[in-house]
Design a protein around this nucleic acid. Structure first.
Lengths: 236, 236
DNA sequence: GCGCGGCCTCAAGAAAGCGTCAAGAACGGG
DNA sequence: CCCGTTCTTGACGCTTTCTTGAGGCCGCGC
């Protein structure tokens, strides 16, 4: 077996008032690895959209407290998150209105779970396209540049080769730059939860990182030791 | 009407064999300012797609000379142009297949002109978003040129023959040039999701690619190994 | 001054991962 | 049905990476 990551799937906001429908969708989504947030009203839908910033919205029209179209329009004022409308109304004019209001797809109830999932994949595919999500994939300190997307480390203009563990250790430090990270945390992150007392690993690997990335490995400027506690990466 | 402006509406490629349906769609599209290119067969569809580089494709499944899904898949090898499938078949499995093959939407005949136009607007809205079109249809590195449209690989002036798996492996690497792609990703992409632990395949096929495309296969400049992680294609 | 705990260094053996070669199986076209 | 191509599988040796241990340094409390 492989010690996989928790594999957190895309976050879906479900806005739907009928309990029965909600149960149906919840079952489908969760069994396919999606994380789920639910709302029962338009107002709650908008509130959750801003609070959770989901990857996708499933929106029922005909909510108790207002038009679902409003939800769509309101969301489109500030986000391009895919919205798939689910509706009992199959009139062409309804579809056109919803789509022009900013919805990305429109399914008429009843629909098959398979089709819904397929259309969700399409929507998520779109959202993944333009490099809109990854904000700052490059961390730098001193003359070191760490490119998290390409998985490359540069020292000046030269690429530095890191082994998998070295890289993982560096990234966990970099992701919490400035903060102290305890031995336990680092070990758990890099070597897994069964190695949280092998502090010797850290000494060896920190030494390697320092040799590869510090100009004076014996007097580290960036990879500093916090005796008895852990290590810290100083990025300025 | 004649005497109009230079008519610079979006260019739509219509791939449809039934003359009746073509007439119907032609009327709708032209009356709404779209420019139109028509194809009657799958082969012609692909040819026109490369020749005209349309803004949107309307694709009928069930063409005389082959599966419409193939057209979708082939196009997705090099372009992200929106594809809306029009089909008489309304089975859920058909929809799922088409959408997963790369289609952006699926309408079952008969459908209303208004809905089609609305869904086209959605598709064009997606395509219009920033970032624009990314995938250059030709990738090159060293003295290698990879033509994604023609599915051809050249080394200098000579064409290099690749087997299907070799080609697929090369393209998945090329589409993420510079980034490390994990063993798992590559295997899933080339051999399907049931082979994600057959890392041995990768060794064999990477060796073959290197032999065909590297000047010194034993010391690869472009197809580099990231031990324990995956492979990377360096394009500079 | 001495002992001790925590840390760093160096290095070697163990383990895992990788590249190579080759043979048999499966496939597809004639 | 046969032949050539492509895919799969296995064995082997090599390289990289991981793990482990021994030794030394330093600061602190006693």
């Amino acid at each position: 077996m492989t010690g996989e990551m928790p594999e957190k799937g895309p976050l879906v906001l479900l806005v739907e008032d009928e309990p029965q429908m909600r149960r149906f969708l919840r079952a489908i989504l969760q069994s396919h690895g999606y994380r789920l947030v639910e709302a029962e009203t338009a107002a709650e839908g908008i509130a959750h959209a801003t609070a959770y910033n989901p990857d996708l919205v499933l929106l029922d029209l005909g909510l108790p407290d207002g038009d679902g179209l409003d939800v769509t329009r309101r969301m489109r004022e500030w986000t391009a998150t895919p919205i798939i409308v689910l509706s009992a109304r199959g009139q062409e004019s309804d579809k056109i209105q919803a789509l022009d209001a900013g919805a990305d797809d429109y399914l008429t109830k009843p629909f098959g779970g398979g089709e819904l999932l397929a259309r969700m994949r399409v929507a998520l595919r779109h959202a993944a396209r333009p490099g809109g999500d990854d904000a700052a994939p490059i961390v730098s300190f001193g003359d070191i540049r760490l490119d998290l997307v390409r998985r490359q480390v540069f020292r000046g203009d030269d690429e530095v080769h890191l082994t998998p563990n070295e890289y993982k250790l560096l990234t966990t430090l970099a992701k919490n730059a400035g903060k102290v990270i305890t031995h336990r945390q680092l070990l758990k992150e890099v070597w897994g939860p069964n190695a949280t007392n092998q502090t010797h690993y850290l000494r060896v690997y920190m030494a390697q990182l320092r040799h590869k990335l510090e100009s004076d490995p014996a007097r580290p400027k960036h990879f500093t030791t916090e005796p008895g506690v852990g290590y810290r990466l100083r990025t300025e």
